[in-house]
Amino acid sequence: MPTSKAEVLQGTLDLLVLKTIDSMGPMHGFGIAMRIQQVSEDLLRLNQGTLYPALLRLEQRGWIASKWDISENNRKAKYYSLTRAGRKQLVAEAESWGRMSAMINRVLRTS
């Protein structure tokens, strides 16, 4: 068991969610939470509840769309899928994240 888990960085939850939906296709909140924890190998401390305001925010901006559907276990669940605007946003945000982290790495290495 890891001794410390990383907090989700401010503003990165949107990117994580967009990317997760992009790679999994339409998915419900629980599935997105599971996937993020799984991919991050449980190193991320994520209150699953914080996902829902984030999902709403993304939907309000028109980056994802939601509709009710039946889950694989025959349960009613709200499924989120990426819109065209969302896909564009994901590309843009991934790029800017890449630039940012590369820059920070450079700074850390040189000093």
């Binding site: 419900h28 909140g29 629980f30 939470a33 599971m34 699953q48 829902y52 889950s71 276990n73 349960r75 009613k76 669940a77 709200k78």
Partner: peptide, 17 residues
């Protein structure tokens, strides 16, 4: 109501797992 339903469904899935 939508939100209630969504959160309930989330918790039920988690319990099931």
């Amino acid at each position: 109501d939508d939100l209630d339903e969504e959160l309930r469904s989330h918790l039920e899935m988690a319990v099931e797992l």
